[in-house]
């Protein structure tokens, strides 16, 4: 893009800056650097060394911002929000759907066994019922893993939001995603889902805590 800055007269520069501000609210960093270079040239011999040093730093800052923008563009961060994260969340959703279907099939078979057990008597009936009880208990894994995966998806969406904010800050794409925390309700602090085993309270810990209220 051709910089709209040319000429080094102070009044002309001020006039052009006003025009540019009106026409381009989101100014390209390289333009800022151009302006600084032009100002430096215009004030050559009229500014004190500290002023020139400061202006030089502003110019360098403009270059840094321009380089960072180029590097971020080279990283193709749009791909993260447009492809990678949606792919990952879709895969996780598929895992939840497949395990749910498998669990339903297991439960259905287990219910059939229960029906068979009702027609039996003695130790075999008890043994069969004990086995189906263990299967029912084990099937609750699906709820726990589902909640864990939901937490991972929420984390991915939060990353997606942050990436979108970075991309937006560097002017390559408008913001689209709302803040993840803003989407959560009032009970945010209490909706943490399953804890990792090392951090989780067990049933006995919870029983003790509840008993402390009595």
């Amino acid at each position: 893009m051709v910089s709209p800055f040319a000429g080094t007269g102070a009044e002309a520069l001020a006039q052009r800056l006003s025009e540019i501000r009106a026409r381009y609210p989101a100014t390209e960093p390289e333009w800022v650097a151009d302006v600084v270079r032009a100002v430096l040239a215009a004030l050559e011999g009229e500014t004190a060394p500290p002023d020139r040093a400061l202006l030089a730093e502003v110019e360098a800052l403009g270059r840094i911002i321009a380089n960072a923008k180029a590097e971020i563009a080279a990283l193709q961060m749009d791909d993260i929000t447009a492809a990678h994260i949606p792919f990952a969340t879709d895969e996780l959703d598929a895992i939840v759907a497949h395990t749910a279907a498998a669990t339903e099939a297991i439960l259905e078979s287990c219910e059939t066994l229960d029906t068979v057990a009702e027609g039996l008597a003695g130790p075999d009936a008890a043994k069969l019922q004990d086995a189906t009880t263990r299967i029912y208990e084990a099937c609750s894994f699906q709820d726990i893993t589902g909640q864990r995966i939901t937490k991972v998806v929420a984390t991915l969406k939060a990353i997606e939001t942050k990436v979108a904010q970075i991309v937006t800050a560097f002017g390559t794409r408008p913001a689209s995603a709302a803040s993840a925390s803003a989407l959560l309700g009032e009970e945010t602090g209490l909706l943490n889902g399953p804890q990792l085993p090392a951090a989780a309270m067990g049933q006995s810990d919870i029983d003790r805590l509840l008993a402390s209220f009595d």
Binding site: G189, A200, L210
Partner: peptide, 22 residues
Amino acid sequence: AESKAENVVAAKQAGVSNYIVK
């Protein structure tokens, strides 16, 4: 599956009769 102490406390304060962790 909410097993943090603050959850148990909040539930108790709301009048829960008992609490089972998944």
